[in-house]
């Protein structure tokens, strides 16, 4: 059991916790926060998998995730405060 297995288990556990919050969440803001957290955690998963595959060009994909996932959250937040 290498150290990467431990990392993968921790990341998957984080995604599962986000899924539970998403299932339970009574309103839309709880679900938004859960999905945003899941996006952040899975960015770490993408970086780790790129390291495990030994292809460092894959890191561009995680860069896209880290840069763009907040736009959807901003859109829903602007809807909830009646901005758009």
């Amino acid at each position: 059991m290498s150290v990467f297995t431990v990392y993968l288990i921790i990341i998957i556990l984080g995604v599962i916790l986000c899924l539970i919050r998403m299932l339970k969440g009574p309103g839309a803001p709880d679900r938004v926060v859960a999905v945003d957290t899941a996006a952040t955690v899975t960015t770490a998963l993408l970086v780790l998998l790129g390291f495990l595959f030994k292809r460092y060009v894959y890191l561009d994909v995680s860069l896209v995730y880290a840069l763009l996932t907040f736009i959807g959250t901003v859109a829903i937040a602007r809807y909830l405060e009646r901005g758009i």
């Binding site: 996006a39 995730y65 736009i71 959807g72 859109a75 829903i76």
Partner: peptide
């Protein structure tokens, strides 16, 4: 990622 993260939700 670039479509599903931002554009579809918007």
């Amino acid at each position: 990622a670039s479509i599903g993260a931002a554009l579809e939700t918007v």
